[in-house]
Write a protein that binds this DNA or RNA. Structure first.
Lengths: 334, 334
DNA sequence: TTGTAAGCGTTATCAC
DNA sequence: GTGATAACGCTTACAA
């Protein structure tokens, strides 16, 4: 910067001002300076800038895993709205582990993020404590936690599963099985399961057909394994509700091998609505969620949080993102 | 930090040393300091540290899109090896656009990354210029560019497609069609197409059955659309080679609707080997690549680049990542 | 419109 | 083993 200033015959301060549209610099000087900047290929050092302005330009963002198109899409949408306002995501994946989440947050805090975005799959006590005292907006996304730390963007996984289960019961299914992970640290999976159980009980039906297998995220392979042994365990089930679309694909594949007809012998529904769900055969009934919507809404929220003057209207704590039930060939529909 | 120092009755310098395992601090003082740090929940500011040490701890990482499990997995693997050595990824997606890539690089340069990792889908002149003069290791991944900037990790997409095509020809297919995007900015897709064409020509076969559709990344839907009109355009084809697995799934779906048998009426192969490829029906023959391997190898390379003393053995410019042909039910195999 | 001085929170360096 | 001092590259606050 010194060099640029010298070359332009001005002080560093003027260069600094020219570089941000901030200051009042005469158009002539600014033009001259910018030309020199281009020529010298000067790139300002944002760490140094942050140190002065106390604004890092970072948004610490955690997702359970990138290895899931939904989270990846959501991040991509978030990123798109953030880069417009000059914010950079620093990304981490929790691998569905609360202790990993805690470690990541500790390390990201060193970067002085202006906002922290993270999923709710349970938090350690220390995580909550860190988050509360750090004095930065915290956004939990993809689920509505029982006791939110600050802001939330997402939908109730329990309500969604409840709605789907109720709709299945209305369609005449009574002996519904639920497929989810064996390890329960994954709270959103547990929420879906709870929704299923509640709906069954409300209808006076038994929710004992529980298949717990593997750890999150469930894969197609997991579903295939479950499908291969399914009739052995719950031969009387008339429908299977999967905690995500992935194992549902595996079940479809396994049942096809066994000559079981879907939905005539048994119905299958998933959760998530991956692109493939429309093209599977039979195509998959599922709970449709809106990953890009979550990312976008999170971006909007951040924009509001950081761009506000003190007497703007208050910002709502929760942004609801819609889900909806999508019916396809894997269930018998009215 | 000042506060911690005062509470511990030492100077800031001693706190700084205690915090990194760097200096020579007596075990007693260090223990005392660390206890106070914990209690006061002090988190050092890495921007300030970077300013002093000239080490940002950042790795600028670009991928074409996160909306593709392969890139997401690769990033996740890279991230896992980087966090061990205390490096943070700053992530961007180019959306297969070289001008977007240029903008992203310019903005990331402000963070003073210690390494730059990016895909090769062509670069603008200015990108190359920026990258060359920035004096930071540059790693191009996922493809071997004709003129690498610095280091490369990946495989030749052209060679892979050539090998697959040759193998198809050996299996007796002669009227092979190739499905890829209409927009050709995407160099790796073009490389695959070039491999296909070269193999066909080597065998004295015609490579005129070219379907160009949509823009990268090709989706299942794209494949479905192509499949719906396929017989109309190339009714005599005996095999379709898709630039990625995604459109291949769409083709399978469309052909099933039309009552076309795969592979008896027509064979289909993909590129990528997504998890689903094993479970599709028929399961999909494809070129198997190793996204996590690319991520891991990139991580290793970075570790070597940053951790070297001047007289270590030189680091190879290129790290080859294997691909292999995987044969399943969607082709007639010997 | 421009410049000067001080300081952001850390660490390198050298002295004790 | 510990401390004082001067950077690091920028911006804020004020002065001209």
């Amino acid at each position: 910067m010194e060099d640029v200033a010298r070359a332009a015959g001005v002080s560093r301060m003027t260069v600094s001002r020219a570089l941000r549209s901030d200051g009042s610099v005469s158009d002539k000087t600014r033009a001259r300076i910018l030309k020199i900047v281009k020529k010298m290929n000067y790139v300002p050092d944002q760490s140094a800038g942050s140190l002065s302005t106390k604004r890092s330009g970072f948004v610490a963002t955690l997702v359970p895993s990138l290895n899931n198109l939904h989270f990846a899409e959501s991040i991509q949408a978030l990123n798109e709205s953030l880069e417009i306002i000059g914010l950079q995501i620093i990304l981490g994946h929790t691998d569905y582990s609360t202790s990993r989440e805690e470690r990541l947050i500790e390390s990201m805090l060193k970067r002085r993020p202006e906002v922290i975005v993270l999923p709710f799959d349970g938090h350690t006590e220390r995580t909550v404590q860190l988050l509360k005292q750090v004095n930065v907006p915290v956004i939990e996304h993809w689920e509505i936690p029982p006791t939110p730390i600050d802001y939330t963007v997402g939908f109730s996984n329990k309500a969604a599963a409840l709605e789907m289960t109720t709709a299945l019961i209305e369609r005449g299914y009574k002996r519904i099985a639920f497929v989810s992970e064996a390890e329960d640290a994954w709270t959103r999976g547990a929420a879906r399961r709870a929704g299923f159980i509640e709906a069954m009980e409300q209808a006076g039906l038994s929710a004992h057909r529980m298949i717990r297998y593997g750890k999150p995220p469930m894969s197609i392979e997991d579903g295939y394994q479950i499908g291969s042994a399914f009739k052995h365990h719950f031969g009387d089930a008339d429908c299977i509700f999967c905690v995500s679309d992935a194992p549902a694909f595996g079940l479809l594949s396994a049942f096809k091998e066994q000559g079981l007809a879907v939905p005539d012998d048994i119905a299958i529904v998933g959760f998530g609505n991956f692109e493939l769900s429309r093209f599977a055969s039979p195509s998959l009934s599922t709970v449709e969620v809106d990953p890009r919507g979550i990312g976008r809404a999170t971006g909007e929220l951040i924009k509001n949080l950081l761009g506000r003057s003190s007497d703007d209207p208050p910002i709502p704590r929760h942004t609801a993102i819609d889900f909806k039930l999508t019916w396809r060939e894997s269930t018998k529909n009215p």
